[in-house]
Design a protein around this nucleic acid. Structure first.
Lengths: 162, 162
DNA sequence: ATAACAATGTTATAATATAACAAATATTTC
DNA sequence: GAAATATTTGTTATATTATAACATTGTTAT
């Protein structure tokens, strides 16, 4: 039996405005539930991060939010990112020093990313199986896990077929 | 049937000079085999990285190799690190912006690290099982893997039993 | 309205990493 | 072995990413 290739939205033609809208709605709901404030600044940063399915750097966010009238300083962006990560709305991609919107916010999950080195896209996948292997092995060493950074770089299906 | 906890050398009392000596010998052999030059500078950087089982930052290496007589500049250290990584003698820990000696140099392997947030120790483990799960999942998305960054942070057995 | 708290602005600087070109050191070729 | 070539290291400058510390503004509760 052959499985067909699962297509991740990020790698397909899609109405990205919907992605953003959905993400923002979810974010508002989560912040309400958590009784924390999704301020204008935090909302703008999250929206900017969701601009694409590619991880974005803090200074890139900064540039997009700044203009002649209003220049935003690094701490403002980093503080918003910190907040968004605390609420599980954003992940940090350590291997790229960049940030990406969480596509399964609120659902308790272990994140794992497939990062295309050609187009830059990040595919967040369910890492349950992978995580099980990791936990098993860690347990073998008496190691207690706190956080898992699983970042896989390579080429996405779209870039492969070109 | 219960398995006993596997003890990683890094987490045990051991003669660390032996670790260093063995690593340096292996390094020399690998560089000879690869027909590349393990110069004095590269050797000193590798030796410094092997000073402990904890990932070390580039600027920390720099400080250890510099003194009043001779101040070493960043590019020197970064170039040595680059070389050592190319030869598979050193790994970069993305989540810490730090470097660690490879404990299974030359053996073609996928590295995975258990990083203790308390004592800083890094345990390199065989990631074959984990990697299988990852490859399986990536294949499901039509994603072709190039490099795997698997960094697990938590608490090592030694710190747990204190 | 005022106190208390939270978020943002502002300035400065820390930490990590690389670019570009010059000098020194090895290696190869003759 | 000397000249030509390639590799490595030195040097200076600067890019990139991130945080510290304190002032100001905005929000919430009393």
């Amino acid at each position: 039996m052959t499985h067909s290739i699962r297509k991740h939205p990020a790698c397909q033609q899609h109405n990205h405005q919907d992605c953003i809208r959905t993400a923002m709605q979810k974010a508002r709901a989560i912040c309400t539930a958590n009784e924390v404030r999704l301020t204008t600044m935090r909302e703008r940063v999250l929206e900017t991060i969701w601009q694409s399915h590619k991880p974005i750097g803090a200074y890139e966010i900064l540039a997009l939010l700044s203009d002649a009238n209003k220049v935003i300083a690094p701490p403002t962006v980093y503080r918003a990112i910190e907040f968004l990560m605390e609420q599980g709305l954003v992940h940090r991609i350590a291997s790229l020093n960049a940030y990406i919107g969480c596509s399964q916010a609120q659902q308790d999950h272990i994140s794992q990313f497939l990062l295309c080195s050609e187009c830059g896209i990040a595919i967040e996948t369910d890492a349950r199986l992978v995580s099980n292997s990791i936990h098993e092995q860690a347990a073998g060493y008496g190691f207690v896990i706190d956080q898992e950074t699983i970042e896989i770089s390579g080429r996405c299906p779209r870039c492969m077929s070109r």
